[in-house]
Design a protein around this nucleic acid. Structure first.
Lengths: 401, 401
DNA sequence: TCCAATTAGTTTTCAATCTGAACTATATGG
DNA sequence: CCATATAGTTCAGATTGAAAACTAATTGGA
């Protein structure tokens, strides 16, 4: 007998409605809805909403914020909002830097700190130690603002196993099957620390806190070319968790060998290294090389211009194929594709028009506006969303003062 | 206020559990479970299962089939099965033929009929008229076997709007924005007739009635190259409903122009027409040309061999990219790719190994075993699944004798 | 032969939770 | 200052599954 689904119990109704109400409060955001507005918005009765809100307030997830004046007459409602005294710490390990951010339940970045750190080839333990220092800063900031930390999210540029806290493979860090202990970064946080992929987190950050629509492909141009697929406002990770590997789509069957073992992958044409090399940018730190490349582009250096043009063209091929396969209607560019957006865009659009005419509206090809906090927001947001989606489990997990 | 989700009501629990029990019976299939076994399998109590089964039996969806002898002692259980006196008619319009099938709730093909029909360029009304004749045969067969027809599914080789019953675009039929009236094929069926895409239906047929796993890509080689993406045992159609267009993945950026307006699409290398042309197969009906090509392959004709080899190679490129983007771990080949499977496979596997080494286990690259009934089964199955997933709605829709 | 053991299925009681309606609370405006 | 309007609470009623006790049907051994 196959028992894919759990049986419905009477209590499930409340779990679902707790989440529905909490989600409504989160979506309404700055408007700070009253119970009556929530009742109208969710379709529940006022009685049910009152009862649900009472539980949420008691748990500390929701706060009442004074009276709310909407119409002209009648008793004013009590405004409700996600508590600004509950937060999650977002953390990011990338090839050239470490970063942390403190995000409250409402999605506000209350503290942010980043340091350069050449992590490539460094032992995970060493990197985690450095990150611990940053995390301590964030914890201090939370204490100062009286924000209780519920949990954390840690994004890394590689494939992860969230259940076991293992980085299965992060080629650009030279990590392979590395067991991490992210929980140690945030002792005592009731929801622990969730490990995630950098591109996926950035995509989720864009969805929840940026200009993300319900369906889009986020393209992450870091050292590697990654992607995050958002479908119906959810991250699509695929059965094995490694969906969105845009960097290894074959864009030319006679193309050069790729570090992945394949050939003709997008990354060999549009990865940071490939672009710098094609443009003839000399060695240096990421910041230096980026500056040099941008300068070269501004003075219309032909080699740099051609390099970026080619990258855009092949990115267009990959996006055309992706759009066809997954019916993608919108694309958000992040990382170095965001930085190079202006120079990349014409070739990219031309390529899309050549390989998939009319499929993607140029207006739906945008550049991320979250800059470097997108990944942090997404990493933290996953924990915040887990609370919004299962508040009942959270109520049990721990009602902290 | 955003009201994405409906509020949970107490009654929803029963809807869910009705579906859970019905689905359990469907999955258990030939084993014909007793109420007690269902209780164990679903996690519900015997009392709850008894009550749910009573409703399902009353509706006619489930039948009791005599005593069930399992253990050595104790009262024997009443075996339960999906009623074999309820059925759905699956129908298919393709470029060269029409087909119908009668499928009972248990997924058994109780009647099947197909005729050659050159539908390319024919007016939809004319094609529907011919199909009506076939549908009448199926209805007669149903009457003879005392099977009540609940509804129908109609698959066409094109993009459809299921809500409005419009074929948005079926290039190989030369149909564009054609309003159909599928309901007229099956007057009186309580659930109407559901329009669907041929490749998607074939993928679903493979999932429900073939060797389909929970996650796979079905590749449909008909006149065009189509695809159906199954993720977590569900069809992924994308936000606009046109996901799975494997035929228009770019496999060579300098490739020839494609009918879609793009260039270098897989279809220009691996579509039926492209293969026949590259192989030098003379004109004729599909059956004749296929026979000629197979004969040429058997006698190791170099041109035919090369044509199929190239098609396999480019199909490999497309599958490598698809696997990377969507984390696809299994592929099922249908249509002419199934027919050519034996000759295609080496080049396809070689190509996969070159472009995405180790990503797809060759054992997970299989050929459909449903032959020509896969699409019919899938088209009908969608209606059957809708009943299994929402039996409560069905109970309201109509309890027929 | 017949009863203890065993398993299937039903009945009964209870708790959870929503709806709906009546009720209380608090504001505005004439 | 009261009619009106809106917010929010209280309470009876309905639905539904859990738990436990009960009835039903069968086997195997005394």
């Amino acid at each position: 007998m196959n028992e894919a689904t759990a049986p419905g119990r009477v209590g499930d109704v409340r779990r679902r409605n707790l989440s529905l109400v909490l989600d409504s409060i989160a979506r309404t955001g700055d408007a700070k809805p009253s119970r009556a507005q929530l009742a109208a918005g969710t379709g529940l009765t006022k009685a049910a909403v009152s009862s649900l809100v009472a539980d949420l307030v008691e748990s500390g997830l929701v706060s009442e914020v004074g009276l709310y004046r909407d119409g002209e007459r009648g008793r004013p409602g009590q405004g409700l909002e996600l508590s600004s005294h509950r937060g999650v710490i977002g953390m990011e390990i990338n090839v050239d830097y470490l970063a942390v951010g403190l995000v409250d339940l409402g999605g506000n970045l209350r503290f942010h700190s980043a340091v350069e750190s050449r992590n490539r080839g460094l032992a995970p333990a060493k990197v985690m130690e450095r990150l611990g220092g940053l995390a301590a800063e964030a914890k201090a900031a939370a204490a100062a603002e009286n924000i209780a930390i519920l949990g954390g999210g840690l994004a890394v540029p590689g494939l992860v196993d969230q259940q076991r806290n293992v980085v299965l493979s992060a080629p650009n860090l030279h990590w392979e099957n590395e067991q991490l202990n992210p929980r140690s970064l945030l002792e005592g946080a009731p929801l622990g620390v969730r490990l995630s992929n950098e591109a996926n987190s950035a995509a989720l950050g864009e969805l929840w806190y940026g200009g993300g629509q319900a369906d889009f492909l986020y393209v992450s141009g870091e050292v590697g070319v990654g992607g995050g697929v958002i479908i119906g406002s959810e991250l699509y990770t695929g059965p094995g968790g490694s969906a969105g590997e845009l960097g290894h789509i074959v864009v030319h069957p006679e193309g050069p060998a790729c570090s992945c073992g394949g050939a003709g992958c997008l990354e060999t044409f549009a990865g940071q290294e490939a672009i710098f090399e094609a443009a003839g940018t000399p060695d240096g730190t990421l910041g230096e090389r980026t500056e040099l490349l941008l300068t070269a582009l501004r003075r219309k250096d032909p080699r740099a211009t051609q390099a970026v043009h080619d990258a855009g063209r092949y990115l267009g091929v990959a996006l055309a194929s992706s759009a066809r396969l997954m019916d993608i209607e919108a694309v958000v560019l992040g990382g170095h594709f965001a930085v190079l957006g202006e120079w990349l865009r014409p070739a990219l659009l031309g390529s899309l028009e050549r390989y998939a005419p009319g499929l993607l509206d140029p207006a739906n090809l945008t550049v991320s506006g979250l800059e470097h906090s997108g990944t942090l927001l997404g990493a933290a947001g996953q924990v915040i969303r887990s609370v919004i989606e299962s508040p009942f489990e959270f109520l049990l997990a721990g009602k902290l003062a």
